[in-house]
Design a protein around this nucleic acid. Structure first.
Lengths: 337, 337
DNA sequence: CTGAAAGCGCTTACAG
DNA sequence: CTGAAAGCGCTTACAG
């Protein structure tokens, strides 16, 4: 491997000047620039990252932390976001370090190694994460951005999905397609997205003159757990055991919707004729289940790219006021509605 | 942040000795050891990785490369393997850099950045990968291990899954459960796993006195494509359009099996009474589809751990003869069989 | 068993 | 516009 010294020698200049060229800093005479550029090409020179990092005191790494349960779910939601980030990263000098954390997270014991050793310049937290992790990052002044998560009463740098409008649109469409009695099945309100999607659901009902609380209460089901197909299954059982007559179910996400459809099929209820189902996220399985699932598409890849962009900006200027960027979504009609 | 100098000063020794302690090298007097250990604790000292890397000429990174199509599939097969690796990595000083490559891979253009900049000590290639990538790694003497893939006629360091025995067991069980006429639906033979699973299928038929080629030909379907639910759907259509009477289908993997079940349901064929279905891999959806899918469980997490172990060994001693380690699998009976 | 010194390959004021 | 020099924080022979 050739070093900056070799390049300098070959180009007949000092290493300082070579460094300027590599980093596109300062002014270098056109002729000198050419000589150096050629030397770099001929030697196929690549700066050694560890040396550069030692000199600049940057690590060049950014961390991506996701709750382990989220990562091993049916959905590859958070891997897609990761991929979007990784993709954005390719234009830069950064690498992403992906790790998972447990729900019951103790910073003293479970701290990701790259945080312990200060091996990252910043961190992206995807989805619901332990609050004491967030506290830790704040205390240590590690730049971070939340993705698809938030804590009420606090403002952090974050990328959020337009959950409210997506849900509103989906339910509004359901009503416009002739459905009269629309239920909601969802998981934990710990996750702000679920809250927002529920809010969109309620608003759409109200706007269409159906928004009374008794109605909603009868036709809704929540479980204080992470969302999963089981939550959907149980939801259907509960709602129908009340002797209800819903003809549409809006689910807090596709994973839940999968369980809802599963149970409807078990009960020989026709989808979408007797009951229409709509999810949220557009995970890959939604196109392959039977019937295919109508949903609200979240552009995961773009979410990842945006997260990386925001984080990079914060790393550059750490003291700017926290901001929230909203990614918009799109209703996708398939067979289930 | 404190440095090795601070520790040396506090302990009243030289930085050389501190370095010995950190790296557990050479002999250090018990008393000195204690002083240094205490100083490290008090200062909460962590060696700066970039400095260490610069001095040792190691990067401390290992790459994980997976074909992009594999990574964005329904299955989170390759993410699980990644997680197993990441987990194994936590006990060490290594980080994993995950990236994807395209099918039509040109080393001149598409080379992952961490390879271009020599930012990894070795690489794990998961699943089917471009052969010219493998060639590149060989030429550049980058240590690597293949996971769940191989090229006939060549021997590389690799972790493979016991595809043959898993398939044999699954089909044997199907026969023992009373099924008489078992078909096979699979994807591309480019992937050696598919080949091996097919071989296991054929052997199980033969051992049970059903192995004639005409029989198999009539009841099998392959597509020269990557496996997917669609491949499964088409497979069912083809097999039944021949006027066949299979009462069991063994699929090359769960993803395909999902499509097979989808199509059987479309045709109102009862699973498992009329036709039983068995997949391979045990992806998460297999437990949540309707009916739940019988399959052969691949311990993805362990595969990842083993891959990391092998790679570490190769990095230590690069010139050992290439070896293949086989991970065993287990038949899981669910509703579909 | 321990320390002084060189070196890893960069960047960055600073001087000119 | 360019170069000499110091420095980033480690490791590693080497000497004692």
């Amino acid at each position: 491997m050739s070093t900056i010294k070799d390049v300098a020698k070959k180009a007949g200049v000092s290493i300082s000047t070579v460094s300027l060229v590599i980093n596109k800093k300062g002014y270098v005479a056109q002729k000198t620039l050419e000589k150096i550029t050629n030397a770099i090409k001929e030697l196929n020179y690549k700066p050694l990252h560890s040396a550069r990092k030692l000199a600049t005191k940057k690590t060049g790494n950014i961390g991506y932390i996701v709750w382990d349960v989220h990562f091993s779910e049916v959905e590859i939601f958070y891997s897609q976001i990761f991929l979007g980030m990784e993709y954005a990263t390719r234009e830069t000098d950064n690498y992403i370090l992906l790790t998972t954390v447990k729900e019951h997270f103790d910073p003293k014991v479970d701290l990701p190694r790259f945080l312990k050793y200060k091996d990252v310049d910043g961190v992206v937290l995807a989805g619901r994460v332990p609050h004491n992790l967030i506290d830790y990052l704040e205390n240590q002044s590690v730049p971070f951005v939340l993705v698809d998560y938030g804590i009420s009463g606090k403002i952090y740098n974050s990328i959020v999905i337009d959950n409210y409008n997506g849900a509103f649109q989906a339910v509004d469409q359901l009503i416009k397609s002739g459905k009269k009695n629309i239920g909601f099945v969802g998981g934990s309100f710990y996750h702000p997205s679920v809250k927002e999607r529920y809010r969109g659901y309620k608003e759409a009902l109200e706007v269409n003159g159906k928004g009374n609380n008794k109605y909603i209460e009868r036709n809704s089901y929540f479980k204080k757990e992470e969302t999963s197909p089981e939550v959907g299954q149980i939801g259907v059982k509960k709602i129908f055991s009340n002797g209800n007559t819903v003809d549409g179910i809006f689910c807090c996400n596709d994973t839940t919707a999968l369980g809802v459809m599963h149970e409807l099929k078990n009960q020989n209820i026709k989808i979408p004729d007797e009951v229409a189902v709509v999810g949220f996220d557009d995970i890959t399985s939604s196109s392959f289940c039977t019937p295919t699932l109508s949903t609200v598409r979240v552009p995961k890849f773009d979410v990842g790219k945006e997260a990386f962009k925001l984080l990079s900006e914060i790393i550059e200027s750490p003291n700017v006021t926290p901001q929230t960027r909203t990614i918009s979504v799109e209703y996708i009609k398939r067979q289930s509605s």
